[in-house]
Design a protein around this nucleic acid. Structure first.
Lengths: 208, 208
DNA sequence: TCTGTATCGGACCGTTAGGTCCAATAGAGA
DNA sequence: TCTCTATTGGACCTAACGGTCCGATACAGA
């Protein structure tokens, strides 16, 4: 839905959208934007990094802001798609909660640059592009809210309100700053421990 | 420690550092940087907003990056100072934990612009200024780590490790994006509910 | 009233930004 | 070999940037 769905054995020609060059540009831009910031990265610099002159670069992209937009939404869209499918499944509340968490940590860990750009720079977008990102963000938040709601309705959770959603989101989202794909724990293991904390707390002797 | 300690009944002259004008510049810059981003905000724009020409502006500030630096560290420094004092107090672990949380939510709620700038733009700093911010950030993280460590040593917490620290930090830090000083809940009430979640979890029937 | 300092506005400087244009090239199909 | 299209590099455009300079002004102390 979001971008080129992927396979479609492309011919040697690069006329179709989603060419190798375009992908290289997107990845390189994500890297530069994440490391230096969107505004601090020039298009000449991007061209150099990708091995293209400015004219050639513009043959593949429409403009700088569109680049930011595409980088920003890609994996949030992926999460929203995942979440909507998850919510239409017959799984129980806790299982939904845990699967959402695992998926999110995995996608963040695998695409740190893109998430960094999304979290830090997406507000630089304007007009319709900005609106779309904002809408996607709130759809994603709503998915979590629905899960927590379900849990509260089922008498399984207390704290099924907005504040709990913010807690969950904060805990997960912040991970783009520290998660290490090569670390001791896999993203899924980290998610499991986060879910343990969120569901049961860190105290050994709950007094309620 | 960080900036002008405050009172010192200043004369009508503005020769002393920390003048009203300088403060106005800092607040206005925080607002603009938070709304538009550091790189996207020009010094002419800042001058206009504060009612000063560019020459006059530079009579009060040293340069743009120093402005970003001062905005970024102010309240993190405040938190570190608070935390160090807290840790030298005779309070119990849970009370330390809760007081730290309350203070953090309060300081974030009262200075949203500055925290936004700190979280989103501090990486634009370079050289020594960047190092100082990074150091401050890790000192703050260490404060939380010490509290959780204590709790684990005392047998009060499980999850007393780095991952728990990240969970706590993420939950709190993310609030700069949504906290509303005029909202129904005070920052302290929000902190209390966050602590409840972190300590006891959101599940009604903990099965452990 | 005179003097010296703090404060100010804005012209100015060199640099770089995003974006356009176009002539040159490469390479596949006929 | 010729042709046509996709791709390329880089000169070029206008606008804006951070920062400096300096003459004008405001004003306190004497």
């Amino acid at each position: 839905m979001s971008t080129d769905p992927a396979p479609a054995p492309r011919s040697h020609s690069r006329t179709r959208k989603g060419s190798r060059t375009k992908q290289r540009i997107l990845r390189t831009a994500a890297d530069l934007f994440a490391r230096q910031g969107y505004h601090a990265t020039g298009l000449s610099e991007l061209g150099d990094a990708v091995g293209l002159g400015r004219g050639a670069l513009y043959h593949h992209i429409t403009n700088k802001e569109q680049l930011l937009y595409e980088i920003s939404i890609e994996h949030v869209q992926e999460m929203v798609d995942f979440g909507e499918e998850l919510l239409s499944s017959p799984l129980g509340v806790e299982e939904r909660f845990r699967r959402m968490s695992r998926k999110l940590m995995r996608v963040i860990a695998d695409n740190r640059d893109e998430w960094t750009v999304y979290f830090r720079e997406a507000d630089s977008l304007s007009g319709e592009r900005r609106e779309r990102v904002v809408e996607l963000r709130s759809r994603f938040e709503d998915l979590w809210r629905q899960i927590l709601d379900e849990g509260e309705t089922a008498g399984l959770f207390h704290h099924g309100d907005s504040l709990a959603v913010k807690a969950v989101l904060g805990m997960h989202n912040y991970s783009y700053l520290w998660i290490d794909p090569e670390g001791d724990l896999s993203p899924e293991e980290i998610a499991d421990r986060f879910c343990d904390i969120l569901l049961h707390g860190i105290m050994t002797a709950p007094q309620r």
